[in-house]
Design a protein around this nucleic acid. Structure first.
Lengths: 349, 349
DNA sequence: TCTTGCATAGAAAGCGCTTGCTGTCACGTT
DNA sequence: AACGTGACAGCAAGCGCTTTCTATGCAAGA
């Protein structure tokens, strides 16, 4: 059988209550007693029963981190930052929480199921990362869940995700995707580009929509007509960028620039351009978004919008742990920074 | 207050026992009763109390996935694959498990603490990914924990990690890092290279050691002296690859090839070479390891050893869930495949 | 008609911990 | 000398579920 609190108590010649208090350190215990208890814990190699503890205390040390795609560094980096602040092992004393990363794969159902699972576990906090899905029914369902979680005492934080009007309790750290998208396109327009292709992410995603809106706002501000044929939607992966670029090129071979939904997509775009015999940026400029670590290393280095993923994640983690004040109004906008590098240049003449 | 089983029972006019049985579906319940119960569950918006359930049933639906660095796609890809098989939401019926990814950051203490945390939660299974740390004391401590976990009924699987002799219960899916490393270096030797630099990962890591051993075996097999000055150790990141390459170049400017510990490091190596005015592969060939998604997109595309991360992860996940037979002897070796691409060529004359 | 047996439902005993409340003892106060 | 007053420690009542064991009802077999 496994060792229980009672066993430790017996060995240390104290009551179970005292052992519990030593372990939780939330009640005065004479140091001699404490020592005796700790020795017994050690000798018996006792490990607290988490479920029992959670049940009795009506709290748990689980913190859920929902990501759309754990294999994507965009989420990996944020998750790492969040987890580092969750404390978990190595964190500051006491708050030993288990930061658990849940991979929704971008599926609404999985997102909901994970939320239920976390609710079931009475999670201490939940952090949702990345763009939300723009489906009224689903958004409503998620908002309802978030509200329930909040009511049950779970702290809810959105990181890199727009605020949910129906769940105002959720603290939101939102990326300024619109502003970033606009900056990027204005940079290209400033270089002289007039025929820009845009590879958008999956439809029905807030991130996709906002970045695209920024792009269009820039075009509009400069009196450039937004030909819908110059926009293609796809997934947030390299393959999709490759195919979308070929498609854009087919539709309009005179393009001088391609703006991608993110860096990974931009990578695919670069590959497609090269395979089509076009030089970057000599023939076509390429821009990405996010500034993932590899973006500076590709050749030519990618012009992109740097999002402070680590900083935002860390902040979200701290807020989730109640170690930092939420922003006023529960909403903060995190801006990106335009990184001009080698993949963009003046258009060919 | 939150809704409890008893509330549902009252509403459905049955006993709590019956509700529990309906929910778990492990006992015959008349279909009319079942329906009544399910309706009540729905109407009350009841969510099972996980801790209570785990306590009573002495089992939990948590599955731990330990990774060294969640921000590194190497681990992200494996974690995604494992989680997809854990079932979690979207998985096959019934087994709704919570696959939790724990980021150790490569720290031995955190690894141990996470294992304790998972033990505390009475995890259903634990999957450890990536290379182990070669410290006798730590390895022993981990092995002891794994044995304890196993005794407590937790399934233990190692994925991309060498078997632990002290914890033979743990199923191991090991990458053939040695063989891959050897293949890679033999490829370069075959091209005519004789002065190869090697950027190894952190010391005291099995992955590092095995890849390096493969490299040396290849050198040895071809009668090439292994000058220790041609090997530099560093972290598994781009920066480290950049610096190590400059160091290698300083030590021996006549190098014609650089073999990196992994693709990310290789990326940094490429950058350093370019910044030093050297062409790839014209002046210096570069090879990586892992074949991460971006490796085919960098210019020139990286010669590397492809590791079937997704397949291995999926298999580990299935084994952890008891849905696939463990390999005979509890150990399986997963081979890599040499991918020859543009970053390697004949040495300059 | 009286068992037997099966299918189903309920009663109740925990699972291992936390915590409010109740002592107990040793001091410092009046 | 009687009496607060802290500082500790223990009792015992749950926390919300699972599961064993025990009814109960009813159809079928003897």
């Amino acid at each position: 059988m496994t060792v229980t609190l009672a066993d430790v108590a017996a060995r240390a010649q104290v009551s179970p209550a005292t052992v519990s208090r030593v372990l939780n350190g939330n009640y005065p215990v004479a140091s001699s007693t404490r020592e005796r208890v700790l020795r017994a814990v050690d000798e018996l190699d006792y490990v607290l029963n988490g479920p029992a503890s959670s049940l009795a205390a009506a709290t748990s040390d689980l913190v859920g981190i929902l990501v759309n795609d754990i294999a994507d560094p965009f989420f990996g980096i944020m998750a790492a930052a969040i987890q580092s602040e969750i404390g978990g092992p190595g964190g500051r004393a006491g708050g030993e929480r288990l930061g658990v990363v849940c991979n929704t794969g971008g599926s609404p159902e999985r997102e909901l199921t994970y939320l239920t699972l976390l609710q079931r576990q009475r999670a201490a906090a939940v952090v949702l990362t990345g763009g939300a899905i723009e489906d009224t029914a689903h958004a409503g369902a998620v908002a309802a869940k978030l509200r329930k979680l909040h009511e049950a005492g779970t702290r809810v934080v959105l990181c890199g995700r727009p605020p949910a009007p129906e769940a105002p309790e959720a603290i939101a750290l939102t990326f300024d995707n619109r502003g970033g998208g606009r900056q990027l396109t204005e940079h290209l327009i400033g270089l002289g580009h007039r025929r820009l292709g845009y590879i958008a992410g999956p439809e029905e995603r807030t991130t996709t929509r906002h970045r695209l809106e920024g792009h269009r706002a820039a075009l509009d501000a400069h009196g450039i007509e937004d030909d819908p044929r110059r926009t293609v939607h796809g997934r947030y992966d390299r393959r999709s960028g490759y195919e979308a670029t070929l498609e854009l090129l087919r539709r309009d071979p005179s393009l001088t620039a391609v703006v991608a939904a993110n860096d990974t997509v931009a990578l695919g775009a670069c590959a497609a351009l090269r395979d089509s015999g076009l030089r970057i940026p000599g023939d076509v400029s390429v821009a990405g978004f996010d500034d993932l670590p590899f973006s500076i290393d590709v050749v030519p280095a990618l012009t992109t919008v740097r999002l402070p993923l680590t900083e935002a994640g860390a902040r979200a983690g701290r807020i989730a742990m109640g170690r930092e004040e939420p922003p006023p109004g529960g909403i903060a906008t995190v801006r990106g920074e335009l990184m001009v590098r080698g993949s963009t240049g003046v258009p060919r003449t």
